[in-house]
Computed example of a mutant assay.
Amino acid sequence: MTTEKIGLEDLPWRERQVVEVIYRLQEATAAQIQEQLEEPPSNSAIRAMLSRLEEKGVLTHREEGQRYFYKAVEAKNKVADSALKKLVGVFFNDSPASAATALLGMSEKLSSADIDQLQALIDKAKKEGR
């Protein structure tokens, strides 16, 4: 297993797709993963990717009879936070405000609940001095 921490964004696109399927299903067999992929690779290719992802420390598995059930090592929200920080750093010059502005610009219409939630987060950040 590698000692360097690997983020989802650092994986090749096909391995990233496999991990995304596992996050969506929470736990999956190679066959279940293969079913979820568009233009899926062969079963042996899926198994090879799962093995590499385990070596990289991204996935782990448990055995149930002859079947292996794979799951992610890190929680989805933790991985999402890491990927988002990297995205903000690379594309928005480490400016969360610039990233938020871009995201708001992508949305055609925000609901009142969305606006209230955003305002509450802004108020909380101000109160905490962030």
Rank of each mutant, 00 (worst) to 15 (best):
residue 68 Y to T: 01
residue 68 Y to E: 10
residue 87 L to N: 04
residue 19 V to P: 02
residue 92 F to G: 00
residue 27 E to S: 13
residue 42 S to I: 04
residue 83 A to E: 15
residue 73 V to H: 03
residue 114 D to H: 13
residue 73 V to D: 04
residue 56 K to L: 15
residue 18 V to E: 03
residue 90 V to T: 09
residue 99 A to K: 01
residue 81 D to S: 12
residue 49 M to E: 13
residue 50 L to G: 04
residue 93 N to W: 05
residue 23 Y to F: 14
residue 60 T to W: 03
residue 101 T to F: 02
residue 105 G to E: 10
residue 108 E to W: 06
residue 27 E to C: 12
residue 78 K to C: 05
residue 67 R to Q: 15
residue 86 K to G: 07
residue 100 A to R: 03
residue 79 V to F: 04
residue 80 A to P: 02
residue 76 K to A: 11
residue 75 A to H: 14
residue 81 D to G: 06
residue 92 F to H: 06
residue 38 E to S: 12
residue 54 E to R: 08
residue 109 K to H: 07
residue 68 Y to P: 00
residue 43 N to S: 12
residue 49 M to P: 03
residue 36 Q to F: 10
residue 96 P to G: 01
residue 37 L to T: 08
residue 96 P to K: 01
residue 39 E to R: 08
residue 54 E to M: 10
residue 72 A to F: 00
residue 99 A to C: 07
residue 59 L to W: 13
residue 59 L to C: 07
residue 36 Q to M: 13
residue 104 L to I: 09
residue 74 E to C: 07
residue 38 E to T: 11
residue 33 I to R: 01
residue 97 A to L: 13
residue 33 I to D: 05
residue 60 T to K: 15
residue 26 Q to G: 03
residue 112 S to D: 15
residue 30 A to T: 07
residue 66 Q to W: 11
residue 39 E to F: 10
residue 104 L to V: 02
residue 100 A to E: 09
residue 89 G to L: 01
residue 98 S to L: 14
residue 49 M to S: 13
residue 28 A to W: 08
residue 23 Y to R: 00
residue 104 L to N: 00
residue 73 V to L: 00
residue 62 R to N: 09
residue 110 L to A: 07
residue 45 A to L: 05
residue 89 G to H: 08
residue 79 V to E: 12
residue 94 D to G: 00
residue 104 L to T: 02
residue 84 L to A: 14
residue 19 V to K: 09
residue 25 L to M: 13
residue 106 M to Y: 13
residue 79 V to S: 06
residue 59 L to H: 05
residue 92 F to I: 05
residue 49 M to V: 02
residue 69 F to I: 10
residue 59 L to S: 04
residue 45 A to H: 04
residue 27 E to T: 14
residue 96 P to Q: 05
residue 65 G to W: 02
residue 46 I to H: 05
residue 25 L to F: 06
residue 59 L to T: 08
residue 48 A to T: 12
residue 35 E to F: 10
residue 85 K to S: 08
residue 64 E to R: 06
residue 41 P to S: 06
residue 70 Y to S: 01
residue 88 V to E: 10
residue 41 P to K: 04
residue 54 E to F: 05
